[in-house]
Simulated scan of single mutants.
Amino acid sequence: MKLDLKINNYDRSFDIEPGDTLADVLRKNGFTSVRKGCDTGSCGTCTILIDGEPIASCSYLAVRAEGHSITTIEGVQEEATKIAEFLNGEGATQCGYCSPGLVLNVIAMKEHLENPSEEEIKHYLVGNLCRCTGYFGQLRAIKKYLQEVII
């Protein structure tokens, strides 16, 4: 079946099977920043934005995305680079496998929460699992990033 999507502000068409997940369709078509970790929607590695909302693309049927705007890390390069600088500054990126999903969640959080507390940040990012960093560096970096962009 044919699927028409708007990805990073570009119209794209794909031939898919009815049961294909959005993560698989995106990866198959060159959006390799969309990574998979659990295939159950619980680790956050596959996070993308649909209409500005973070979703787990590994458990989201591709056909549901028709008519919506999809953002991957490739579509927010400048902001992603800035967030990465904060993460690197706090030693919070080691393998980097989970980083695209985390960064997209931070971008969504910035739009949805006004001056979030540490507890609100933790709650918003509860679905982003990382096996390398221990989360403290990530939390410090995200707080510093949000303080800079809010001011």
Results as ranks from 00 to 15, higher is better:
1 M>T: 14
3 L>Q: 12
4 D>Y: 13
5 L>G: 14
6 K>Q: 14
8 N>K: 10
8 N>T: 02
9 N>D: 15
10 Y>Q: 13
11 D>Q: 05
11 D>W: 00
12 R>C: 14
13 S>E: 14
17 E>M: 12
18 P>A: 10
18 P>W: 09
19 G>A: 11
19 G>N: 15
19 G>R: 15
22 L>F: 13
24 D>L: 14
24 D>V: 11
25 V>C: 09
26 L>H: 09
26 L>Q: 12
27 R>A: 12
28 K>A: 15
29 N>V: 14
32 T>H: 06
36 K>C: 08
39 D>E: 15
40 T>A: 08
44 G>L: 09
45 T>A: 14
45 T>Q: 04
48 I>T: 04
50 I>Q: 03
51 D>M: 07
52 G>W: 08
52 G>D: 04
52 G>S: 07
55 I>G: 02
56 A>L: 07
56 A>H: 13
58 C>Y: 01
61 L>K: 01
61 L>P: 05
63 V>C: 02
67 G>P: 09
68 H>T: 11
70 I>M: 06
73 I>V: 15
77 Q>L: 15
79 E>V: 15
79 E>F: 11
81 T>V: 09
81 T>A: 11
83 I>A: 06
86 F>V: 01
86 F>T: 03
87 L>I: 04
88 N>S: 06
88 N>I: 08
89 G>Y: 10
91 G>Q: 02
91 G>M: 11
92 A>V: 09
92 A>C: 13
93 T>W: 00
94 Q>F: 01
95 C>S: 00
97 Y>R: 01
99 S>Q: 13
99 S>R: 09
100 P>Y: 06
101 G>P: 10
101 G>C: 10
102 L>G: 03
102 L>P: 04
103 V>R: 04
103 V>Q: 03
104 L>K: 02
105 N>D: 03
106 V>W: 08
108 A>S: 10
110 K>I: 00
112 H>E: 14
113 L>I: 06
115 N>G: 03
116 P>N: 05
118 E>R: 09
119 E>G: 03
119 E>M: 04
121 I>V: 02
122 K>Y: 00
123 H>K: 14
124 Y>R: 00
125 L>K: 03
126 V>G: 00
126 V>D: 11
128 N>K: 06
131 R>S: 15
132 C>W: 08
133 T>E: 00
133 T>W: 01
137 G>R: 12
138 Q>M: 15
139 L>R: 12
141 A>N: 08
141 A>I: 10
143 K>H: 01
145 Y>H: 01
149 V>K: 09
150 I>G: 12
151 I>W: 00
